[in-house]
């Protein structure tokens, strides 16, 4: 942060961001331009939100700057969870509708402003007609199988990213139980807004742990496509599966417990069960 380097002594005395920002604005250096808004939007928001292209994971943000007050938007972007908990009816309604937690964004006041400016500008643009969609890699069965290998880690990611299974679980054929550190991805495809949602997230992960995990080793287009395809397959197949496994575990566990207890009772059948003097005490107690 150049600001800090310029004014270390003053910065030390003032508390954190507000102070720094105030000084920064007074001096007038380091302000964020509206042009940066597009870049920041792509990096932080684009995987879940679009402007004018419909709902992805979160709502379409077209016209949001006119719909909500600026203060409201700032609060929601910075800490949506606590904002919802504070009881704001609009925020709560959004959460109820989308059921996905929007991660807190570590963005400065100016950065948010630039994003909002970008959204406002973009909202005014007329949708370009007949825009050719970027050329997507066609999804094939082989690619889906590869997606499974990527997920399990038997096929490493080209850029050396960690396999999904280390943090995520997937309830699917013969896939060993995955990590419990992050969300279960069995239903991810439908939960996170289909192909676009998954692709968005994999392109630029919005979750802090995932962001840092793939910051230096991003996934390639091919990897993203195959993983998305695989997650779609898992999600689809899930409809045909019944929740037999969990009840089986309970039932099997109960039977196993009964068998173990029976075995213990047989093996240690001839143990000394009570103190030798018990009958003496019993008789003496009964005669009182």
């Amino acid at each position: 942060m150049p600001k800090l380097k310029l004014l270390p002594t003053i910065a030390d005395r003032l508390s954190k961001k507000i102070g720094i920002l105030t000084i920064a604005s007074i001096i007038g250096i380091g302000t964020v331009n509206a042009q940066d808004g597009e870049a920041i939007f792509k990096q932080s928001c684009g995987m879940c939100h679009s402007v004018g292209k419909g709902r992805v994971v979160g709502p379409d943000l077209k016209g949001v700057t006119t719909k909500r007050k600026e203060e409201w938007l700032h609060k929601f972007i910075k800490a949506s969870q606590s904002f919802i908990k504070e009881g704001d009816p609009d925020a709560k309604a959004i959460y109820d509708e989308y059921q996905v937690i929007m991660p807190d964004q570590n963005l400065s006041q100016d950065e948010i402003k630039s994003i909002l400016t970008f959204i406002a500008n973009k909202s005014d643009e007329k949708p370009a007609e007949n825009v050719e969609a970027p050329k997507a890699i066609p999804l094939t069965a082989a690619l889906i199988m590869k997606g499974r290998k990527y997920f399990e880690g038997s096929e490493p990611f080209v850029n050396g990213g960690t396999a999904c299974i280390s943090c995520h679980n997937l309830d699917y054929d013969n896939i060993i139980p995955g990590g419990m550190l992050a969300k279960d991805l069995t239903k991810a495809h439908s939960r996170l807004g289909g192909d676009d949602g998954i692709k968005g997230i994999l392109n630029a992960p919005p979750f802090p742990a995932m962001t840092s995990a793939y910051k230096n080793n991003p996934l390639t287009e091919e990897e993203i496509t195959s993983l998305t395809g695989f997650l779609m397959l898992v999600d689809k197949d899930k409809v045909h599966r019944h929740a037999k496994d969990s009840s089986g575990l309970l039932f099997g566990g109960f039977i196993g417990l009964c068998i173990i207890i029976t075995l213990i009772m047989i093996i240690w059948n001839n143990k000394k069960r009570k103190m030798v003097k018990q009958h003496i005490y019993d008789r003496q107690r009964d005669t009182i």
């Binding site: 093996i267 001839n270 143990k271 000394k272 030798v276 003097k277």
Partner: peptide, 15 residues
Amino acid sequence: LKNIFHNPHMPVLDD
């Protein structure tokens, strides 16, 4: 070995 963690024929204190 069978009874190493629970020696079932030992006298208890009340014995």
